[in-house]
Amino acid sequence: MYNFDFEKPSTIADAVSALSAEDAQALGGGQTLLPTMKQRLASPSKLVSLKGIAEMQGICTGDDGALCIGGATTHADVAAGAGAYPGLAALAGGIGDPAVRARGTIGGSLANNDPSACYPAGALASGATFVTNAREIAADDYFQGMFTTALDEGEILTEVRFPVPEASNYQKFEQPASRFALVGVFVAKYADGVRVAVTGASEEGVFRWTEAEAALSGNFSANAIADMTPGEDGMISDLHGTAAYRAHLVGVLTRRAVTAAG
């Protein structure tokens, strides 16, 4: 680890100001950033912790019924407090281990957009709204490829608003070593259609499997996508699975998610 400055502001405005310094970096729970810094693979001049900002903590229900989760809310708190959206609570409760869930935050995960992380699948499948200090961003515009999002430099993800679906489920098939998602599929059924988001599989990061969405929107059952598999083009191929295997898992897990969502 290289030396760095550290600030822990208590308001979003102070955080934005602190992040205006050159090479400053926002710090959520540090579950990715700190190991990266220890490996000397990242060297921010300043870390700005978002954990002291009260207005970024916690879960509430918006006027439109959406579940609003503060960006600095931990996975453990979402697992325990997002009962109104059981599929999302279960996703949060399955991330990492208890220590990771006690530190890691939803904002940190979504701002990092790891291609194998769980939250991007939940947020994209929910058509969530990403609230920042400057604007609101639709989920379909937010994810822009591996480790890439619509966030500008210094922009803070303060809240994520999840429309609550009629039915939902997340199926994660763990990579044996990291236990990140080798493939993860989140299915959410809304009155106006079904959304299916896939993490872990694509070289472009989280994506919507629109073919399955179309079939499931007409008939929300595993049979509707019985023989369906996305193409293996663009799927990740590595030590833990070929592109064909990942594509196959997308089909399997989507069917399981639909069945489990009921």
Partner: peptide, 24 residues
């Protein structure tokens, strides 16, 4: 039998050089 694999690529790079890829 099920998990561990110290795998090298053709350039001699250890692909499973951390617990992110070496499954204990």
């Amino acid at each position: 039998a099920l998990l561990e694999n110290a795998a090298y690529d053709e350039n001699g790079q250890l692909l499973s050089a951390s617990y992110m890829d070496y499954a204990m």
